[in-house]
Amino acid sequence: MPAPNFVDYVKICCRSGAGGAGSAHFHRDRFTSKGGPDGGDGGRGGHIILKGNRQLWTLLHLKYRKHVIAGNGQPGSFQQKKGADGEDIILEVPLGTVARDAETGETIMEITREGQTAILTPGGRGGLGNWHFKSSVNQTPRYAQPGEPGQEIWNILELKLLADVGLVGFPNAGKSTLLSVVSAAKPEIADYPFTTMVPNLGVVSYRDSRSFVMADIPGIIEGASEGKGLGIRFLRHIERNAALLFMVPADSDSIREEYGVLLKELEKFNPELLYKPRVLAITKADLLDEELMRELAKEVPSELPAIFISSVTGQGIQELKDLIWQEIQENDQQE
């Protein structure tokens, strides 16, 4: 997907419909000159609704739709006829979309399932007709309720990709290359930093016709959690991953230090990310001989599963899939 077409953040003004007024009508016909109250209720104002659609991968279709306006409810009528409800507006969004109040930052809802619907901005209730207010002491109420006004709220929609495993690493760590090898995804690959400008998803085939989804996140740099580089823009996509695959190239100055920097940036962004299952892959292992590999193995942190891999030669790729699958399954059992 071209970078300009990947939109994972939009701010929109949502205006729900006002409720219709109740009617203060009295029954009249050629046989009845002074009938009782029969005013109907006003219709509900239109809602603005979010609906999950697994065929969507971006919020691009909402980028230029700054104002979303639902229809107003119609007033009630005679013979207790209820007014028509206002037209609802349904906004289809990708799975993983989070809606927040633009002023308070409060999370309103999350859309994670196909076909899931939730009211983002409710319409105003319709007013009650005068027949509701008839009593033994007031046989002819000459009033009815007005409809409730609609709401006008600025909302932020953010997309957090749904994937089983997210790739975490500095630029040029080999994330896109790995994704292109283990899945049918075709991310842009080149020998310079920040080749990946948008997240990429790939379905990885596993044993016995099973599979899992892998997300390639644009490279993190030191200070990403404070807004440096591209990392801060895409770190939220890691929040929904079931497991994290840290990738450090074999030719880095220090595997342990580079892994520590990545972990520190995630902790600054969201400390809860540290509780996710983690696997460490040392990439570009085709550059190493056995003796050098044994030396580098001493630098590998002992607190997580680690493996040397090469996307070029295929070294360790199947073993890596086994490790990832194991971590995903253990995470599912805990939940």
Rank of each mutant, 00 (worst) to 15 (best):
G147F: 06
L179I: 14
L128G: 02
L179S: 09
G123K: 07
I69F: 09
Q151D: 07
I111R: 07
A184S: 14
Q74L: 11
A144S: 15
I69R: 13
W154F: 06
K66Y: 11
A185Q: 04
I156F: 01
K160P: 00
N155Y: 14
N155S: 09
P187R: 05
L157I: 02
L128N: 12
N172I: 07
A173H: 11
V168L: 13
R142V: 11
T107K: 15
E188V: 14
W57S: 15
Q74V: 01
Q80Y: 00
P171K: 12
V168K: 12
T58L: 06
P171F: 11
L178T: 06
A84E: 13
V137M: 08
V68R: 01
R125W: 03
T107P: 01
T112L: 15
S135Y: 00
T107Q: 15
A102D: 08
K66T: 14
P146E: 10
Y64E: 15
G71H: 07
D101L: 08
W131K: 11
L95R: 05
G96P: 09
P94N: 04
G73H: 06
D85R: 02
G76V: 05
G147M: 08
A173R: 09
L157G: 03
D164K: 08
G73Y: 05
V165R: 10
I108A: 09
L157D: 01
P149S: 13
S136A: 13
E158C: 09
D164Y: 08
E114W: 06
Y64N: 15
F78N: 06
Q74E: 12
G123R: 09
Q79A: 13
N138T: 13
D85N: 14
K82E: 13
W131L: 02
I119K: 10
L95T: 04
H61K: 11
G71W: 09
Q79T: 02
K82L: 05
N130L: 03
G76E: 07
P146R: 11
T177E: 07
K82Q: 15
A163K: 10
L120E: 00
R65W: 04
L59C: 10
P94E: 03
N155L: 15
G115K: 07
G76A: 04
V182N: 11
V98M: 12
G147T: 04
D101F: 03
A102Y: 08
A163L: 09
N130Y: 06
R100T: 14
T177K: 05
A163Q: 09
I89P: 01
V68W: 06
H132F: 05
S176V: 06
V98Q: 13
I119F: 05
L178D: 05
D88R: 06
P149Y: 04
L62R: 03
Y64K: 13
A70S: 10
E87A: 14
S176W: 08
I156T: 14
F170N: 13
A185Y: 01
E92G: 01
A84Y: 01
G174L: 12
A118W: 08
V182P: 10
L159D: 12
F78P: 01
R125A: 10
A84M: 09
V137I: 14
G129E: 05
H132I: 04
G174V: 10
G86F: 02
E92W: 00
D101I: 04
E152R: 12
A184E: 14
R125C: 02
T104M: 05
A173N: 08
P187M: 05
T177L: 09
P94H: 05
G96R: 07
G147V: 08
H67T: 05
T97M: 03
E106Q: 14
